[in-house]
Design a protein around this nucleic acid. Structure first.
Lengths: 150, 150
DNA sequence: TATTGTTATACTCTATAACTATA
DNA sequence: TATAGTTATAGAGTATAACAATA
């Protein structure tokens, strides 16, 4: 946020660095940090993202996970293939809608997901330590607003 | 942010959905929205990100752009190759440090970058319309904090 | 007819390491 | 010795379109 003098005019700009550009940058950095923190698990960014969302233990369809992660279903197919091959999750037909698969973490998958979750919350705790609840609420409001117009 | 009752205990969680997970999701969505808005230019996400940062017209080194976009230098090489082949930018040796290249947009590159910038600010304007300066400041504080610990 | 999820294809992104040239 | 940037390689992410099964 800021006002900048240009000649005799003063124009108001949304942000000196835009909310979108810093979003991309922060995403790149956090993905790399999480990958490093979880180096022992040999997970890619998309796998970490999927596991972090699955970590709550709730059973979901692929399309649901797709919406939560922001990853396309075509991409998720490959990600889920790898997680399934690794024994981290199972796909079983949803008897209520037999076009759909229900994703369930295995015991081993729950352990891995818990470690992912821990790494994520560690990072969040460290980052947000000095910030106020209002600032964090503002963050969520902006991100939600970006989501809505996309 | 929220408190959740688990049995007789009430635990405080940093966020119901974590700042990191929503960051990933929002990034996926904005990248897709920008790609669609700029469909005529046939640009990939990394190319859009690079052009959006170069749009201010400042001359930069590859490492500088790498820091700004959050993209690795090895990835940027390919991105810059394509932008250069397209006639959007030039690489020339920095006479002050002859290991380094200075990236400069061509006239055509400036036009493309301006369109990228416009798409980004359009999206930001639409998203941030109903939000307060404090909320946006909170967003920037959180993103900056994430950056610092990564 | 529309939706869920997979497959196929082609291209881009990413990590890692090795390399050249310069500092 | 360290740094800037490129190259090489292999694997992962992405868009698009086509497809089967189901709704």
């Amino acid at each position: 946020m800021g006002a900048r003098a240009i000649g005799i005019y003063s124009i108001f700009v949304i942000s000196d660095n835009g909310v979108v550009l810093v979003l991309q940058r922060a995403t790149h950095h956090t993905l790399r940090a999480l990958g490093a923190a979880l180096a022992g698990l040999e997970l890619t960014a998309a796998e970490i993202n999927a596991l972090a969302n699955l970590a709550d233990g709730r059973v979901r369809s692929v399309s649901r996970l797709s919406a939560e992660t922001g990853t396309r279903a075509t991409t998720l197919t490959g990600v889920l293939d790898r997680l399934e091959r690794r024994g981290y999750l199972t796909r079983r037909l949803d008897s209520a809608d037999r076009r759909s698969f229900l994703l369930t973490l295995t015991e081993e998958g729950r352990l891995a997901a818990a470690r992912v979750r821990a790494a994520v919350t560690d990072l969040e705790r460290a980052a947000l330590a000095g910030l106020s609840a209002d600032q964090i609420a503002g963050y969520h409001a902006v991100v939600a607003a970006l989501q809505e117009v996309c």
